[in-house]
Design a protein around this nucleic acid. Structure first.
Lengths: 135, 135
DNA sequence: TATAACTTTGTAATCATTACAATTTTAAAC
DNA sequence: GTTTAAAATTGTAATGATTACAAAGTTATA
């Protein structure tokens, strides 16, 4: 369930054919708060879908990102992470445990100088440091 | 030259022994506005320093990042880029040409909710879209 | 049922980055 | 100015995330 509709319906609304694998992968992302990598998603789902291929996970995540179903986070350095929450928010990555946290932020409050004629498609605000669990 | 002092002196001030390779690598970053990757730096310098090793470039860039001489940009997805400008500013990456542009922004204007007890070490604000050259 | 389009799968590449050990350079002690 | 130890550099070999690609499976439609 997301915004009151099923994952399946949500996929259709975004123009993605809701195959079994796609439903399960999106479900995984929407229910997770850990901003998983493709590998993480694969490890989670292979338990219940033994035939799942890692390639399917990569392809599907790329498809979701293209269709605006998930956000791609270039924050970890060595692996891409994905976020099922597409509402604007910031990210905090802990240098110690590598966990990624969400936080509320309104980047519309920022003024940017020097971008005349540039088309902005995505905004990303992220912080790096030590989380409260690791301090 | 940076802030009126030589690259060599700048390295010393930051507690880094100014070897020939380190001077040349930092010089490369400070003079560049292209936010080069380790590979880019290597390709640029190998022309003049035929004995240079790619490992040296990687190690040196990591050292510089640790010592606060350069910023590490996780913006490109498939490679880490480095910025010799450590003053706060935002980055814009063009989805078409992959160039990274700087722009002025003051992230102190932002209020972040949900980070009580978190230690913030770095702030990053970046945008993704199409640059004015590619529009 | 036949056919084409779409999905998934597995294996084999690719490519950035890191590990590691050997060599070279630098600086300090004698 | 040697000797010696520490620091820096180098090259090769791994690692690990991601992508390419082709085969096999599935679905929808004519």
């Amino acid at each position: 369930m997301i915004n009151g509709i099923s994952i399946e319906e949500y996929l259709r609304q975004k123009g993605v054919n809701p195959s079994y694998q796609r439903i399960r992968i999106l479900e995984c992302l929407v229910n997770s708060k850990s901003h998983p990598s493709a590998e993480d998603v694969y490890k989670e789902l292979i338990k219940e879908i033994p035939t799942l291929s890692k390639t399917t996970v990569y392809n599907t995540l790329e498809l979701f990102a293209d269709k605006g179903l998930v956000l791609t986070l270039s924050i970890d350095g060595n692996q891409t992470r994905y976020d099922g929450n597409t509402l604007e928010h910031g990210h905090f990555i802990c240098e110690s445990c590598n966990r990624v946290y969400d936080f509320l932020v309104d980047t519309d409050a920022l003024t940017c100088e020097g971008l005349d004629g540039f088309v902005i498609k995505e905004k990303h605000f992220y912080l790096r440091g030590i989380c409260s669990s690791c301090v």
